[in-house]
């Protein structure tokens, strides 16, 4: 395995980590707002708060990692994506900023506020929509480099069915991932009422999530034939994803082994996400940039990988401690341990 592949694998893993933890967070925000509107928030409020409060910052860091990491490993991405994404990127920043700070304001400072809760819910859907445009753009045809300037073709972006397909896929996936995790968390907390409602949400969003996956798969065929064919070549990855989905949904429907079900959901997205990514290679941006011509120098690559390994040695025990105290500590999850600031 060469440095280019190691680099992109590390980054893709971070992005996958972000996909999972951020989906849980984004979906939780939406469910929290939605249940408030339908006066069911007393059922799931505690579950969501108890999980989110200690971990929300960690979520954001996955994204920062990816952004900083990709500039380190593939400096040319800063040039291409940075130039093209000024407007969508800035909108994502604003949404992330509103979400992060208003979550903290509501949790640590103020009393409950309708506005905060609305912002928290709305951004939960808008952020995945805006971030997913980056993956759309990477397929090529949305960016022009006329007269030496990289420009985003807005008409092409907003007029393409593929682009809207990805947006919807992102939103329904967020809701499905989040609901299946919160179902598991509620079952650990032995909170029957919350479990009932969240299980229902998980089952509602299961079908839209998988069908959008299939639809986007075929839309890609029209958009980028080369990428599509590469994906068909590794059809087994997507087959595995589909099996994991069926199994997870079956378990949730049967009302047992919610933990296994959530792991299966993670596998479903892992195989699909890495299958998509592997087939995308070597291109970072069709047809301008590949991992080979956009790569950093070898010394930098080695030192980034070394820093990455050292960092993991530091982070894994820390993350384990965090999870042990807040995710796997039955008394905390059940609300029997104090949670005072």
């Amino acid at each position: 395995m060469n440095y280019e592949l190691i680099g992109i694998t590390v980054l893709w893993t971070f992005l996958y980590g972000y996909l999972i933890v951020a989906s849980i967070d984004f979906g939780a925000g939406f469910f929290s707002y939605y249940t408030k509107q339908t006066k069911k928030d007393h059922l799931i409020h505690n579950i969501i708060q108890r999980y989110l409060s200690p971990v929300w910052e960690v979520t954001n860091v996955f994204l920062i990692f990816f952004i900083i990491g990709i500039v380190g490993f593939f400096p040319s991405t800063a040039y291409y994506y940075g130039s093209a994404l000024l407007v969508p990127g800035s909108i994502s920043i604003i949404l992330l900023a509103i979400r992060g700070s208003y979550y903290a304001f509501a949790t640590y400072g103020a009393k409950e506020s309708k506005l905060y809760s609305f912002l928290y819910g709305a951004t939960g859907l808008l952020i995945p929509a805006s971030l997913s445009t980056v993956l759309t753009i990477s397929e090529g045809g949305y960016v022009s480099t006329e007269s030496g300037r990289v420009q985003l073709l807005y008409g092409e972006l907003f007029g393409s069915p593929y682009s809207w397909g990805v947006v919807i896929l992102a939103i329904v996936s967020v809701l499905f991932i989040s609901a299946s995790f919160l179902t598991y968390y509620a079952s650990r907390a032995k909170d029957a009422q919350a479990l009932k409602l969240l299980r229902k949400y998980a089952l509602i969003w299961a079908f839209p999530a998988i069908s959008m996956g299939v639809i986007v798969f075929f839309l890609l065929g029209q958009r980028n034939a080369m990428h599509f064919e590469n994906m068909v070549d590794i059809w087994w990855a997507f087959g595995l994803s589909f099996v994991a989905f069926l199994w997870a949904t079956y378990l949730i429907w049967k009302g047992k082994n919610y933990g296994t079900a959530f792991i299966l959901v993670m596998i479903q997205y892992f195989t699909a996400f890495f299958g998509y990514g592997a087939a995308h290679l070597p291109y970072l941006l069709y047809p301008y940039l590949t991992i080979y011509d956009g790569f950093t120098n070898e010394t930098m690559a080695i030192s980034l990988i070394a820093a990455f390994i050292a960092g993991l040695l530091l982070l894994i025990p820390s993350l384990y401690l965090l999870m042990k105290l807040f995710l796997f500590d039955a008394d905390y999850v059940e609300g029997k341990k104090p949670k005072a600031l």
């Binding site: 200690p54 860091v61 990692f65 030192s303 960092g311 982070l315 005072a340």
Partner: peptide, 23 residues
């Protein structure tokens, strides 16, 4: 790029323990 990458690690480390410390 190296220290920028390491900065993200340092902050990650801090964020994890801040979550633990507060609660």
């Amino acid at each position: 790029g190296l220290p920028m990458f390491m900065e993200a690690f340092a902050f990650f480390f801090e964020a994890i323990f801040l979550g633990i410390y507060l609660y």
